[in-house]
Simulated scan of single mutants.
Amino acid sequence: MSVLPNPSAARQGRALLEARPLVVERGVSRHAEGSARLRLGHTEILATVSIEAKVPPHVRGKREGWLMAEYSMLPRSTQDRMNRERNLQNGRRHEIQRLLGRAFRVALDLSHFRNQTLIIDCDVLEADGGTRVASVMAGYAALHDLCDRQVKAGTLTDWPIRSPLGAVSVGLVGNDIRLDLDYSEDARARADLNVIVTGDGKVVEVQGGAEGEAIAPELYIELLRAGVGGAGTLLASLQRQL
């Protein structure tokens, strides 16, 4: 994957702790039960929700359904064409899918979907850093679209979302803590975290660490605090658009 040109202009006028503009549109797929397209700067994600009338063996007989997530990058989502992800053993993809699944299961009360499996597909249309955190928010928006449709149709009688989800990347580039890294910044970061929070500011997951050289615990906490604040700000923007 090629580094994007002109790293010095990467922030494009943003302050160090300012995220890129977030734009989301719901109901973009005619066929999916729920869908959303989300753009975070130049990173763009299409998320769809499908419902299957079955559950995996470990959920059978329980009073709740199941949720799983799939993640993929399209060949020209990057500057140079990448091969289609036909290898089911792709480690990075599986790591991101597990992250997404855990986050969405925190957000949704699956007792409203007994004997059903929700599959959230997050496809990267264009990548410029932060694809996994953008996928969290796109997938949440698609879930919101699904639930809104089903409540209005009378399929669901109660609102099943327990908490909205916000997410952001934060990193140490040089000596600066920067929020919402684009690709050129992420490639130079000494440390970076992906932070996912709920609507009341609680942490769902923190993923990441140092690159090449360990950092002090105090600096890690500073990164985490910046991430929690930034994820909350992006979530507020997302909520306004839903």
Rank of each mutant, 00 (worst) to 15 (best):
C147P: 11
L46S: 00
Q116Y: 11
T48Q: 00
G61F: 10
A138W: 11
W159A: 08
T117F: 14
S135H: 06
L143G: 09
Q79I: 09
F113Q: 07
L88C: 00
D180G: 07
T117L: 14
G61Q: 10
L67D: 07
H112P: 01
Q89E: 10
R114A: 12
V173N: 06
R60C: 07
H94T: 11
D148Y: 08
V59F: 14
G41S: 04
G154R: 07
L146V: 05
G101E: 08
N115H: 15
S72T: 14
R98Q: 13
S35I: 11
T131F: 01
Q116F: 09
S163C: 10
D158C: 01
G65I: 04
P164C: 01
R93Q: 05
L165V: 06
A167R: 00
V136Y: 01
L88G: 01
A142G: 13
A103G: 01
M68F: 00
R149P: 05
R60W: 00
R81I: 08
A107I: 01
L110M: 13
G41K: 00
W66I: 10
V151T: 09
H58P: 05
E64T: 06
Q97E: 15
V151E: 06
H144E: 14
G171D: 07
S163K: 04
G171W: 05
N175T: 14
A127R: 02
D121H: 09
R37N: 07
H42F: 06
L108I: 12
A103E: 03
L108V: 14
H94I: 13
